[in-house]
């Protein structure tokens, strides 16, 4: 599964970067969202992917039965998802305010406006 996932993540990265290289700030936001998804999947795929073995311990047991998925990357990704949301909100509002002040949605134009 990992090779397929690796390809998909690569494509996701490519899409994200392509969008971030656009001049329109709205597209930049879309790129940012794609990028955080891509990054989360990157960690997920690098850790190896396991089917049907969530890192949970059955009731009464001291350890999970057999091999389970690696819980550490999952913990990392969980916080990353929430933080990415926070960052996205921040970016979206920042862009909104910038648009209100500068009245331009073109990054190249914003660069010239020194306000």
């Amino acid at each position: 599964m990992e090779p397929i996932m690796a390809l998909a993540v690569g494509l996701l990265y490519a899409a994200a970067i392509y969008m971030m290289l656009r001049r329109s700030i709205v597209k930049l936001v879309i790129g940012l969202m794609l990028l955080s998804n891509a990054a989360n999947l990157l960690i997920f795929a690098s850790a190896g992917m396991t089917r049907g073995a969530p890192p949970l311990i059955p009731e009464g047991a001291m350890a999970p039965e057999g091999l389970v998925a690696d819980p550490l990357p999952q913990a990392l990704i969980l916080t990353a998802i929430v933080i990415a949301f926070g960052v996205l909100a921040f970016a979206v509002v920042l862009i909104h305010r910038a648009y209100e002040v500068v009245k331009a949605d073109d990054l190249d134009q914003m660069k010239e406006t020194d306000t």
Partner: peptide, 12 residues
């Protein structure tokens, strides 16, 4: 702490 869930998910 025992099943899927936790502070982040519950908060959301």
């Amino acid at each position: 702490h025992d099943e899927p869930g936790g502070g982040f998910i519950a908060g959301l």
